[in-house]
Nucleic acid binder design. Structure first.
Length: 469
RNA sequence: CGGGGUGUAGCGCAGCUUGGUAGCGCACUCGCUUUGGGAGCGAGGGGCCGUCGGUUCGAAUCCGGCCACCCCGACCA
């Protein structure tokens, strides 16, 4: 077979770019760092959104929408927040042909505007918790853009909540982390993630605690798939989100924020993709099965394929017919692999003459001849099996490329090819700075039992050190 | 901002050393033959060679200015 993509082992970043272009996922936008999300990729994003949205609502949050433009002064109200974001802000200085009295920033995230309105809406402990989410685009001027992974504009959901107590805020943040994010990634994207706490150095600007979900990519690097933050009372004080308690005292609320973005598309590609293209987990795939008319003779092949499509659709399979018989079969097969359809069913005259079709699984490329009558059952079974197989394979790769070490030097060595699990006490704040100079970061910290620590100063924590995107 | 590099068709590139008015692969259009793993042959369409100026009878090519972009050193969903 002709080589379609640069093999991953030869040049992983090149493979990634080739894939995005050949599978028609995205194009670079005219302004550096921007991207055009093409229909093939956008359909996947829409399914991510639908699943995430359902889970977020189940966790009690409601959707709302806040403005794209934020007064520059808002950002400045929280000292760490401005400091963290000012290098990557897009600032609008003119509007309607005139210079603006106060510059307006294009939102890099919405803690500040939402904080302003939370302050208006929260008066009493009865107004809490206030659980909001918004689907939006945000802009962070990036120096090193990479499609999906780091672009100057991207799409995401950002949740913002206010609670009466610190414990409530913490519980809700972790609930989102575990019940929304981890399950979404595990059950829909088939990506195993390590949950942990970011070090103070890696913490979100303005947060008191930042939690992360880290996934390993095909080349052993780490990717942060999502984050949740406890913001303490930092924003509550900056925006005066106060309320009267049951006891009649005036209190500041405790706020949180949490987000996942189109970066997950990049994670999906780099976690499951192989040298032939994307592999989309069946639960996520906009089209789960592609029924391919291999070639047409007298019209009977297409008609048999149509019947199969109807049967599969009736069984709840998201299915599409490929009857472009004037395009060579090989091209269509390669295209289907690039785009990562989980299952392809080949319907051709040779097999059909014997009442058969061929089931092709994208997961491992295997081909299985089937009697027409058993096709629907075999497809649904394969979809279920391959959802799990992708997860298991990703988990096995992560295990295989994670090394348990006891010193910083060993950890830096191991981070050359994968992840290092190392006692946090062997790294420390100084070791972290040293690692950063070698392009290795502390991805997260967790306790011996895998749970999330309350601070980086707890004893006996484990750190994951790795290179990252 | 410091160092290195590149601007020629939608994409990827050659041509520049040694000036003579632009070519290759892919993609695109049409026709015929094909179609069970990126089909073959034939015929077409598409570029004022980043930009401004200079040298010259003549500049993609030589000289100078400017602009843009890319890669390496200070970040994040």
């Amino acid at each position: 077979m002709a080589r379609v993509l640069t093999p991953r082992a030869e040049d992983f970043p090149r493979w990634y770019q080739d894939l995005i272009s050949k599978a028609e996922l995205a194009d670079n936008g005219p302004v550096r760092g921007t991207m055009v999300i093409r229909p093939t990729a956008y359909a996947i994003w829409e399914r991510m959104q639908a699943d995430m949205d359902t889970r977020i609502k189940a966790a009690g949050a409601e959707n709302a929408y806040f403005p794209l433009f934020i007064p520059e002064s808002y950002l400045k109200r929280e000292a760490e927040h401005v400091e963290g974001f000012s290098p990557e802000l897009a600032v609008v200085t003119h509007g309607g042909g005139k210079q603006l009295a106060e510059p307006v920033v294009v939102r890099p995230t919405s803690e500040t505007v939402i904080g302003e309105f939370m302050a208006k809406w929260v008066d009493s402990y009865r107004d809490l918790p206030l659980l909001l989410n918004q689907w939006a685009n945000v802009v962070r001027w990036e120096m090193r853009p990479r499609v999906f992974l780091r672009t100057s504009e991207f799409l995401w959901q950002e949740g913002h909540t206010a609670h009466a107590t610190e414990a409530d805020a913490k519980d809700y943040t972790l609930k989102i982390h575990h019940e929304v994010y981890e399950r979404h990634m595990r059950d829909l994207l088939a990506i195993p993630v390590v949950l942990g706490r970011k070090t103070n150095r890696e913490r979100f600007a303005g947060a008191t605690s930042t939690y992360t979900l880290e996934a390993m990519m095909g080349d052993g690097k780490a990717l942060q798939m999502g984050t949740s933050h406890e913001l303490g009372q930092n924003f509550a004080k900056a925006f005066d989100i106060g309320y009267s308690s049951q006891a009649g005292t005036r209190e500041y609320a405790w706020t949180t924020s949490w987000g996942t973005s189109t970066r997950m598309l990049g994670g999906l590609i780099m976690c499951h993709g192989d040298d032939n293209g994307m592999r989309i987990p069946p639960a996520l795939a906009p089209v789960q099965a592609l029924v391919t008319v291999v070639k047409e003779t007298d019209g009977s092949i297409t008609s048999a394929a149509r019947t199969l499509v109807e049967d599969l659709a009736a069984a709840g399979v998201r299915v599409k017919l490929d009857d472009r018989v004037d395009t060579p079969f090989g091209r269509r097969a390669v295209d289907a692999e690039l785009k990562g359809y989980p299952i392809r069913v080949e319907v051709g005259p040779r097999d059909l003459a014997e009442g058969r079709v061929v089931l092709v699984r994208r997961f491992d490329g295997s081909k299985t001849p089937l009697q027409l009558g058993e096709a629907v059952g075999a497809v649904t079974a394969a979809l279920e099996a391959d959802q799990k197989a992708l997860y298991d394979e990703a988990l096995a790769r992560r295990e295989a490329h994670t090394v348990e070490v006891s010193t910083l030097d060993e950890a830096l060595e191991a981070a050359g090819t994968g992840w290092a699990r190392v006692p946090w006490s062997a790294v420390g704040v100084d070791g972290e700075a040293l690692a950063n100079e070698r392009a290795v970061t502390v991805r997260c910290l967790f306790r011996a039992d895998g749970s999330i620590p309350a601070s980086q100063d707890e004893p006996d924590l484990t750190a994951i050190l790795a290179r990252s995107y």
